[in-house]
Design a protein around this nucleic acid. Structure first.
Lengths: 170, 170
DNA sequence: ATTGCTGCAAACGATTTGCATGAGG
DNA sequence: CCTCATGCAAATCGTTTGCAGCAAT
């Protein structure tokens, strides 16, 4: 196991929170909206995850910090985060909207296991290039793209072959 | 209004229908399911479209051929088509499931206008290659991928600039 | 004071299922 | 005959909205 993945930017987490809060408050001001303790709490908890959370999952986490915060507030706040670029919706084909943070996050894509929902991220600069090329070709003003690979992860493959072996042995 | 459609591959349409029906019936037999006139009608109407139809839109078309066929049957039949590879679900981000035929259809992707829902198809071999490369790298057995570009089509861009010009002129 | 925010409950809309009846093998 | 298919109505589930009371500016 080489590469333990050390973060060479010492206080990255704290800086990210401060930066994110600044972006959110700026966004609120611009739209004539107001700060609230709930929104700050939701942002703080959201930034602490690296997962792809559904609104409900995030709400569950939020309640541990402040049980009074309701589902609707989390739902509406996530939309705010998307508006100001702090969060991005990701498509996992499991019937719920999922969000990840998108601040200081290098453009990436997901490969998702359709059995267990596990996912890995990968990088692919050629996809960005492709978006621009195709947009130009058909005179579209491109906004974004969505790219996912669906498959079966190593551990689920193992479970499947084991199951087949067991059936065959009977 | 029969058979206006000019096709330079003489009996391509007929062959596709025959092939599709064969695939469907084979699939039904394998699962111990039964043929039905409804399923055949739905397949016939579905194959005649080149659009990306929602279940409801397809149901509307179906009713012109046989008003007795219900929404649920169309819904369940589309799932069958997906199972046996006759149809594929496409993601248009408009909140409804959309299907296109996938038989004898070269692999392609979509660029979708988020204003009017218009879409263009494009081809990109590098995407297929990427799916395999990433799958191998992370030991995933890849099944499929999903790639869409979202943007604003030429005609909607025009409408937008016109609208801005009108506001500015007042 | 004014205006936005919150949390509840209710509305919503697409999808999915239960069930009695009808059709396929 | 037995099993599956059908179509209706009802249930489901994530999402979205209306509203009365609360909080921020």
């Amino acid at each position: 196991m080489p590469e333990k993945r050390v973060d060479n930017r010492p206080s990255a987490a704290h800086n990210t929170l401060a930066e994110a809060q600044h972006i959110l408050h700026e966004h609120l001001t611009q739209l004539g909206l107001k700060r609230s303790s709930q929104r700050d709490t939701i942002l703080r908890v959201f930034l602490k995850t690296r997962d792809h959370l559904s609104t409900e999952e995030l709400h569950t986490l939020i309640k541990k910090h402040d049980p009074a915060i309701g589902y609707t507030t989390v739902y509406r706040t996530l939309k705010l985060f998307v508006q100001c670029g702090l969060a991005a919706e990701v498509e996992f084909r499991d019937g719920v909207a999922r969000y990840e943070h998108s601040l200081n996050r290098r453009s990436h894509h997901h490969m998702i296991c359709t059995r267990c929902g596990d996912s890995v991220e990968f990088f692919s600069p050629e996809i960005e290039e492709l978006e621009h090329r195709i947009g130009k070709k058909f005179n579209y003003l491109t906004i974004q793209h969505s790219f996912q690979i669906y498959g079966i992860c190593e551990s689920c493959q193992k479970k499947l072959t084991d199951a087949v072996a067991a059936t065959g042995a009977q």
